[in-house]
Amino acid sequence: MKLLDRKITTKINDMISDLVATCSRVLSTEAKVNEEASYDSKDDAKNRLKLVLMHDRSQLTPCQMEQMREEMLDVISRYVEIDRDALDLCLEAETNTIALVANIPVVRAKNEEEIQNNIENVQEQLQEEVQETAGVQEDIQQEEAQEQPGHS
């Protein structure tokens, strides 16, 4: 008997809550407007998840992202004058692919002469670096050559 009672009461409770829900939905158009205006927590979860998964999947550390940003800035600023602080680099996902999206505000275009100068400067720098490393390598080889007879 007791079991039956409990079943009936739960059923009645269900019915009442269903009725209350429908009544409140029908009566309160005001509440509905508020509901639409408020942001669903599910959307929060979805957006946050998408962003975090994109970074997880790209396997780039924040440090590497920053380095990439700096290097890109160096290259771009040889050709155009840009606002370095305003550069916005982020990852975006479209279905299954990840895109790297950069928004770079250009302050001023550089003229032919400036660009040529910049490129020459970079080439000189590169050559210097190459020579330096070659010099270091020679030093190492010389040291090794000196050490070897001592060992034998």
């Binding site: 669903d40 927590s41 599910k42």
Partner: peptide, 9 residues
Amino acid sequence: SNDMLSVND
């Protein structure tokens, strides 16, 4: 009630 990620999400 849009308070949980749906199956499709």
